[in-house]
Computed example of a mutant assay.
Amino acid sequence: MNRIKEVLEEKGIKQTWLAEKLGKSYNMVNAYAQNRQQPRLEDLYKIAEILDVEVKELLKDRTEL
C-alpha cells in the first residue's frame, strides 16, 4: 500500500502533473494513487524524486494497514 495520493494532496500537486513528469498515463498514476495497482520499485523511486520526498514517505507503515 502506498501514500502517493496523500503526498500529492499535502503538496497540492495534481495527478495529471505527476503523470506527465513520470511519463505515465493519468490512468496509471490514478491506479497508483487509489492503490488499485502498485508502482514498480523503479517507478516508486522516480515518484519520490519528482515529489522531492524520501521513498519511505510514499509507503504506508504496517500500523496504517
Rank of each mutant, 00 (worst) to 15 (best):
E42S: 07
M28Y: 14
K5Y: 12
V29Q: 05
E10V: 02
R3L: 14
T63V: 13
M1E: 02
Q15Y: 11
I4G: 04
Y45N: 00
I50Q: 03
E54M: 08
A48K: 02
I4D: 10
L65W: 14
G23L: 08
P39H: 14
T63H: 14
S25A: 12
D43V: 09
V53M: 04
A48G: 00
K11L: 08
I47H: 00
K5L: 14
Q15K: 03
Y26A: 02
L44D: 07
L59N: 12
D61P: 09
K56F: 15
Q37K: 09
E42N: 04
Q37W: 05
K5V: 10
L58T: 06
V29P: 06
V29Y: 06
I13L: 13
L18D: 00
G12M: 08
E49A: 07
A19D: 12
L18F: 05
Q38V: 04
Q34K: 10
V55A: 15
Q34T: 12
L44E: 04
L41G: 08
L22W: 01
Y32E: 04
L44G: 05
D43L: 00
K60D: 13
L59W: 03
Y32R: 12
E10I: 02
M28A: 13
K60Q: 10
A48V: 01
Y26N: 05
R36N: 13
L41K: 07
E20W: 05
Y45F: 10
Q15V: 00
K14F: 13
V53P: 04
P39I: 06
L44I: 02
E6Q: 10
V7H: 01
M28R: 15
R62I: 11
K14Y: 11
I47E: 05
N27P: 15
I4W: 09
D61V: 15
K21N: 08
K56Y: 03
L22P: 04
N2R: 06
A31E: 12
A19P: 08
V29I: 07
S25L: 09
L51S: 05
K60L: 11
L44A: 14
E6A: 13
E6R: 08
N30F: 10
V7T: 06
I47Y: 02
W17L: 01
Y45T: 01
I13T: 00
N27F: 14
G23D: 01
K46R: 12
L41T: 05
L59H: 03
L44W: 07
L8W: 11
